[in-house]
Amino acid sequence: MKDQVLPFEKPVIELKSKIAELKKFTSESDIDLTSEIKKLEDRLEKLESEVYGNMQPWDRVQMARHSNRPTTLDYINEIFEDFVELHGDRLYGDDEAIVAGVAKYNGTPVTVIGHQRGKDTKENIRRNFGMPHPEGYRKALRLMKQANKFNRPIICFIDTKGAYPGKAAEERGQSEAIARNLKEMAGLTVPIICIVIGEGGSGGALALGVGDHIYMLENSTYSVISPEGAAALLWKDSNLAQRAAESMKITSYDLNELGIIDGIIPEIRGGAHRNVAEQANNIYETLQKSLQKLTSYSKDELLEQRWEKYKKIGAYTTL
């Protein structure tokens, strides 16, 4: 698969290909360019840390949507053992925009649930671009309740543009499905850890997002509406998405500052897709610390802390 190059990282990619060219040239001819190559490599190092160290909100939006960005299943394969996928909501169907199942994390049984995008058109059609219908949320809830019954921690990966805005989704109660998940998740007495790995789009993301700990990958976003949607609504011009990305405060750094998430999981330079195994390892370590802490709480403590956590989110004052 050809690597998708994002506009802001173009200088890096160009320099990289130049170095590769020189290397090829050196190996094929008698002229020794080793010192020039070394110089360029030093320059690349500098350029990379400059470009990836100064990513703007819009750059991160594009990174979160990168076509090669690791998906829920990619991380499941790396992080967990013995994953058994489970299907269906027992009411209507099986929504492949959400994957869910049981697995082991470092030997401990857990339930894993996440939005699932496709990486190409064919898979995206099958996964409905990671935009769930009500049956997806109901499948997730069914398996969360199962986890609760058998006292397994729940780990959710969030990666969706939003719940699917379609006729059938409305007929089958998209609102009710999301609302029910919010309420029921609040009452589960097992630890719930949520990790935003790509786009966290509005209510459709939130329906897997009521956690005791919420983390975001460094280049993921979490927002009430897409930057394009916000621009269209607020300024009647979806071309102002870049500006909206800045003013809506949707990056991991913004949410951390707003006190909504519990931490940022650092991404490897150039984005998670550069090395899935390494990125998965970062997530693995965060999960370890998080689980250690959460499993030390009693059921009542979990419920109380969950309430305290959400109770304090908001900005208001009195006249």
Partner: peptide, 13 residues
């Protein structure tokens, strides 16, 4: 922004 979104959770909890 996202503070509004989180009110959905707050009220539901």
């Amino acid at each position: 922004g996202v503070l509004s979104l989180m009110q959905m959770t707050k009220t539901s909890v």
